[in-house]
Design a protein around this nucleic acid. Structure first.
Lengths: 326, 326
DNA sequence: TTGAAAGCGCTAACAA
DNA sequence: TTGTTAGCGCTTTCAA
């Protein structure tokens, strides 16, 4: 079933059928009716590959994320996808699985599809992929971080600010011996560094840090607390790089009969649905991931449709959420 | 940058350049070298829309899921995506957000892209979408359930079998007053129904059921337990329709100082990473979601590439995982 | 408001 | 092994 078949059935030229389908107000009521009828009768579904090739507009947006299972980014991706779909776009999803090599192959595959825009979770460091992307001329949104030198557009927040603010918050609660439990990703490291620096600035005990590597499970959190207590038995508060890790620390604290927040306070990151439902409820840092997704969708569509992008760099900020655990 | 530019630079015909890129062993070493050099020098990335249009093979697979955040399906989608990507395919992701209306629009949009295959989480009930899909001739895999009348291929397991087996398992542990806490989705209902029937068969107290509606959070689980204890204070075990709900029930039990599994046993579903890390560790029903994704990828690619599909209907089964909570 | 012609960038089919 | 020709299904441009 092609446009020609529909046109023939409706007794018009293919281009007229195309207009009836895509820009119905450019066509007489009579023609519109006949074409619509023909579409229904034939079950015609336009071939968007052909349309995209002819118009150089694919109505496809690609999104790149490190992982999808239990990932903090999924709220963003879901919002992005929802906003795009309502406007007639579709989402292609790529996973890097935290591998730079894979990311490069992925970006080349994505560029090959000629999407109207690309959404990246995180920043793209200088390298072959970045060069390729910039050369392609495809609108890009980087996200979940800030930098003075984005590829194109940017919607994020400052991880250093978070580290500092959490340090001040915990200090204000009277904690003096602070620790960090974190995964080995760059943004977590950035938060941890700023956190440690601020703690020193405040004249408190230097921060003890446990790096759980690339596994970001509850178990890692449990193991990390054990390790931490070995190194520093009188630690008073742990700032975790994700709610999942915090949940692990919390779980292990319960197993060891350590009172939370009485003897040990715990702070998460991400404010996932898990956090508020824990007992004790987990204090965390809230990021409005949905907002990032929605804004990114708007930016990319504005670019794709030739409109000026009003705010190509947005800091969506964050908020420290005080609950029972810290 | 098009293939023509590359060909010109390499001093060959476009089709020869195409061969050098796509089927390098059909081309002399000399030509291969020249074309590769031209590709590097121009930064050429083939336009897959054009290639897809010409060859009627898009190398695109579409996947449809109800939701992505904290969803049990994401392991499947991740495995699907990984397997496909390694074979040169890409994934388009669509979300129905549990809306039939949206699902229909989504499927039409998907068909418009002429993907080489479509993966559905769940079964597609008879209706306009199903008709459209069957008419399109695109290979389809339905999943996470069984039916004698799939659209095309099917990779799943029996929810009724699960309900029955869990009932027998819990009965074997000496429980007599059983309850179900479930979300209002069809598969959860199927498990609950079979569970209740089997409990009656075994001559035990009829099952009390709490339906938490469409919200599938930890909070729903907590509320559900409160509700359940109101209705039936001496309940001995709760079979939940997801690990997340089970975690909620577990949390609330702790708040109410109810011993688990001593006074109340809890059984989850999905065996997500959460389950094994809880304290007490959550007994659950394990589904090999990754296997479903991998098998589906194989089936769809086999079909797309004209190979015979050896096993178009697969029951991947399940296993009851005994841990501390039940 | 409608249509004819040309072409988007690539590959299938055939020929040399 | 390489090239020529034709066309995938649609939209752009221009003309009526």
């Amino acid at each position: 079933m092609t446009l020609r078949d529909v046109a023939k059935l409706a007794g018009v030229a293919p281009i007229t059928a195309s207009r009836a389908i895509n820009t119905p107000d450019q066509v007489s009521a009579e023609v519109l009716r006949k074409v619509q009828e023909a579409v229904v009768r034939t079950g015609y579904v336009p071939n968007r590959m052909a349309g995209g090739l002819a118009s150089s507009r694919s109505r496809l947006i690609a999104a790149v994320t490190p992982s999808t299972v239990m990932s903090v980014f999924m709220g963003t991706i879901e919002a992005l996808n929802g906003t795009l779909f309502d406007a007639g776009y579709q989402l292609m999803l790529g996973q890097t699985s935290y591998s730079a090599e894979r990311e490069e192959a992925l970006l080349e595959a994505i560029i090959g599809r000629r999407p109207d825009g690309i959404f990246l979770t995180g920043l793209l460091p200088p390298g072959k992929s970045r060069t390729l992307l910039m050369a392609s001329g495809i609108p890009v949104v980087e996200s979940w971080d800030l930098t003075p030198t984005p590829i194109d557009m940017l919607i994020g927040f400052s991880h250093s600010d978070i580290g500092r603010e959490v340090a001040r918050y915990l200090a204000s609660k009277g904690h003096r011996k602070m620790a960090v439990v974190r995964a080995s990703d760059e943004r977590a490291e950035q938060r941890a560094r700023a956190f440690s620096e601020e703690v020193l600035q405040l004249g408190l005990t230097p921060v003890v840090e446990v790096n759980v590597g690339s596994s970001r499970s509850i178990t890692s959190g449990r193991d990390a607390l054990t390790q931490l207590l070995d190194a520093c038995p009188d630690v008073e508060v742990v700032f975790c790089s994700s709610d999942l890790l915090a949940l692990g620390v919390l779980t292990q604290a319960r197993v060891l009969n350590i009172d939370v927040p009485g003897r040990l306070a715990i702070m998460g990151f991400g404010d996932t649905p898990l956090a508020s439902d824990m007992v004790p409820a987990l204090s965390s840092v809230r990021i409005n991931g949905e907002e990032i997704g929605q804004l990114a969708a708007r930016c990319l569509m504005d670019r794709a449709e030739g409109r000026e992008v009003l705010r190509p760099m947005v800091d969506v900020g964050f908020s420290v959420i005080e609950r029972d655990s810290a």
